[in-house]
Design a protein around this nucleic acid. Structure first.
Length: 421
DNA sequence: TCTGGGGTCCTAGGGCGA
DNA sequence: TCTGTCGCCCTAGGACCC
């Protein structure tokens, strides 16, 4: 049996842990640059604030219902996630962290009555030890566990946050209850296509032929169908995979026209990516740079340029990557276009022990010690060492007007308790 | 005025060598 | 030497996840 554990409204719940007076208030968390809504408390959902809502369009609603707004505080959420995962990891040796707020556990050899007890204990312990509310769905496959979790969350009072699909009757009932758009792995496009074919629920989905699915969708959806039929096709992945690509992309607060400004941005993003690359002990041998105008500006034509540069050797050096990234930027930059977004993606990642030496250039790896020293200093002195082309004065800082403190990871931002006299 | 970011996997289609 | 077929590899783009 698989259990899917999902933290309820995770980012909003993290904020509430340190501001418990907001327990009943509607809360929204905004994306980078305070652009759009990426997490909502149940109260905010009830008001009708949708996921991904542009913040500026909902200003009046926020004001009317006194919605508490937070800029995203990823150091806090990441640390809270670690704490939750450490507790969950003690429940079974077969454990997979699926995302920042979700994990799968495989239970082998547990009787069904023990599963219910175990799951209820999980809900209680995580709440008591971290303050985060969770829901647990248990079923014979991962796809069904996802559905069980939705039921547990939807009917949290009745289920106490735990729902188990452990017989055929419950499976059929759950599939009939689940709208096709809510099935894990069925997105917007597939929902449209399936509805045209008369498929409105998960139950309808498992009743269409394998042939139709393979022909009109892909092997992924066929696998999903089998999984929902109760045949476990999506296995537990316990390894912490090395990333296959690493990217840093950002939208700008203002439109940028000059090459100089874009160079500064790309250089900073490259430095950021190179650091991530070294921290997972990888190197790369190609990179993609893109720059794009504002897709929402109807008056001007949307323009997106990108190019891939294949490096002559694999590297993890910020200096070398920066050199090629800027070269790529020069290739795609066009005068008189206002740019709103830019980014870099490092591709073809390899373990850095497989770094290939170049017979004709023995200076390639001379940066290794330098990078090592810079990384160590940056860790100690809060990212003070940068390349000259990077944004040294941090003039491009993101808009984060409602940022909470990093209560759990910064000593000078730790929560203070006042003694009421 | 203001609309996120970081990933993964799969498929189609073309090039190319056996 | 020419031609057809097959399979592999690569890439771009689409779809999905959180």
């Amino acid at each position: 049996m698989f259990a899917l554990i999902d933290c309820n409204n995770f980012y909003a719940s993290c904020e509430r842990v340190f501001q418990p007076q907001l327990e009943k208030d509607p809360i929204v968390i905004l994306s980078n640059n305070d652009g759009c809504v990426i997490s909502r408390s149940n109260e905010a959902k009830k008001i009708g604030i949708p996921m991904g809502a542009p913040a500026f369009k909902y200003k009046n609603i926020f004001k009317k219902y006194n919605v508490k707004i937070f800029s995203s505080n990823f150091p806090l959420y990441g640390d809270m996630s670690d704490r939750v995962m450490k507790i969950l990891d003690t429940y079974s040796p077969d454990f997979e962290i699926y995302s920042i707020d979700e994990a799968f556990i495989k239970f082998n050899g547990f009787k069904h009555f023990a599963l219910k007890e175990k799951s209820l204990d999980m809900v209680k312990k995580v709440r008591e030890w971290t303050g985060i509310p969770i829901s647990v769905g248990v079923a014979p496959t991962k796809g069904l566990a996802k559905i069980a979790n939705k039921i547990a969350k939807k009917y949290s009072i009745k289920t106490k946050g735990v729902y188990i699909i452990d017989n055929e009757e419950k499976r059929i009932k759950a599939l009939k209850w689940t709208a096709i758009k809510d099935v894990w792995g069925i997105g917007r496009k597939h929902t449209e296509k399936l509805k045209k074919f008369g498929v409105f629920t998960a139950y309808d989905f498992v009743n269409i032929s394998d042939f139709w699915i393979k022909k009109n969708m892909s092997i992924l959806e066929l696998r999903l169908k089998k999984d929902l039929e109760g045949l476990s096709c999506i296995k537990l992945d316990e390894t912490i995979p090395s990333k296959k690509s690493i990217s840093t992309t950002r939208s700008f607060k203002n439109i940028l026209f000059s090459l100089n400004d874009l160079e500064e941005r790309i250089s900073s993003y490259t430095g950021n990516c190179a650091e991530k690359l070294r921290s997972q002990k990888s190197c790369c041998n190609s990179l993609l740079i893109f720059i794009a105008s504002d897709p929402f500006k109807l008056k001007s034509k949307y323009c997106k340029n990108s190019t891939i540069i294949n490096l002559p050797f694999t590297t993890d050096s910020s200096i070398i990557l920066n050199k090629f990234a800027l070269k790529a930027l020069h290739e795609i930059y066009q005068k008189d276009i206002g740019y709103k977004k830019a980014g870099i993606i490092l591709l073809n990642l390899k373990p850095n022990r497989s770094k290939q030496l170049n017979l004709f250039n023995n200076k390639i790896n001379r940066d290794e010690n330098l990078m090592d020293a810079i990384d160590k200093m940056n860790m100690k002195f809060n990212n003070k060492i940068k390349l000259a082309t990077q944004d040294l004065n941090e003039t491009w800082k993101m808009k984060q007007e409602n940022l909470s403190k990093r209560y759990t990871t910064k000593l000078d931002e730790i929560i203070t308790v006042q003694n009421k006299k």
